[in-house]
């Protein structure tokens, strides 16, 4: 049972990344390569706050949320706004990702830093498997965030406006939706969300400058499994990737998990390229 709990909790992290990708996808029909870097930055900020500066927990959450939100704002202005088209954005957001990777390495170096839990880090036995308090908090929070976002996107006007924008940007504009501001809001939201969840994720992943690349890929696989634009899909996809990774590591050896996740990606792309919850939109001429 332990590998299952462990898989679910790391899967929650991947789900978070996939949710971030999804929000940007809904708002811009584009892909933010650097989203995982935002998360990594939040984790390093948590490490700095808890271990180096020894700040109160709430202040750390606030600093991470505001700081990473600002980085997202900056990214929107320099890497998203000036260019059009998903492929151009791939290059600029990849640039942003590389820049953030480099900055992180410059500030915190290459070594793996252990991030303490913000609360209790006790471990206990649940249904025959060991699980720690931070892991439980992580899984529960991610599920709650996803559910809240799903409800919000379907019930609130802002959510509906976002969906309308994803469907047809020009039509939404004509309907009086301030497309630019809404999209910017969504983008900054992904940064703030990464900032707020960073302290929860840190104890699970540790802080290391190569973390973002790994998170980006697993998050992408979660997204591909769930389907682009689907929040429930992102959640489910994240947990699936986490379980595949953890169970492969447990039963097949420590060298194989990442390769296995790659195989899962290839399989899903071959068998159901739109993902479990994705829809094909028919092309218009």
């Amino acid at each position: 049972m332990t590998p299952i709990w462990s898989g679910l909790s790391i899967g929650a992290v991947y789900a978070l990344i996939a949710i971030g990708y999804n929000v940007v996808f809904i708002a811009y029909t584009t892909f933010n390569f650097a989203h995982a870097q935002l998360m990594m930055f939040a984790i390093f900020v948590t490490y700095w706050g808890l271990v180096v500066a020894e700040l109160p927990v709430l202040l750390i959450f606030a600093i991470a949320a505001v700081g990473v939100g600002l980085i997202a704002l900056l990214e929107e202005f320099v890497a998203i706004r000036p260019v059009k088209g998903a492929h151009a954005h791939l290059v600029t957001t990849l640039g942003m990702a590389t820049l953030l990777d480099g900055t992180t390495r410059l500030i915190w170096g290459d070594q793996v830093l252990k991030v303490p839990a913000v609360g209790s880090d006790a471990t206990f036995t649940l249904l025959g498997g060991r699980i720690s308090v931070p892991e439980v908090v992580l899984v529960v929070s991610v599920v709650a965030i996803a559910v809240a976002m799903i409800v919000y996107s379907r019930r609130s006007l802002t959510g509906l406006a976002l969906l309308a924008m994803a469907e047809d940007r020009d039509a939404a504009l004509l309907r009086g939706i301030n497309v630019k501001r809404l999209a910017l809001g969504a983008f900054v939201f992904t940064g703030v969300l990464a900032g707020l969840t960073g302290p929860l994720v840190g104890p699970k992943t540790f802080a290391v400058s190569t973390l973002a690349a790994a998170l980006a890929l697993k998050g992408f696989v979660a997204l591909a499994i769930g389907g682009f634009g689907s929040l429930p899909g992102a959640l489910l996809g994240g947990f699936l990737v986490g379980l595949v990774e953890s169970l492969t590591g447990r039963w097949l050896g420590s060298q194989l998990p990442t390769i296995m996740v790659f195989v899962v990606l290839l399989l899903i792309l071959m068998l159901k390229p739109t993902g479990l919850f994705g829809t094909t939109r028919e092309r218009m001429v």
């Binding site: 320099v78 600029t92 640039g95 590389t98 820049l99 480099g102 390495r105």
Partner: peptide, 9 residues
């Protein structure tokens, strides 16, 4: 990485 990142952007 910093230089490449800025360059790509």
């Amino acid at each position: 990485q910093i230089v490449y990142g800025i360059f790509l952007i």
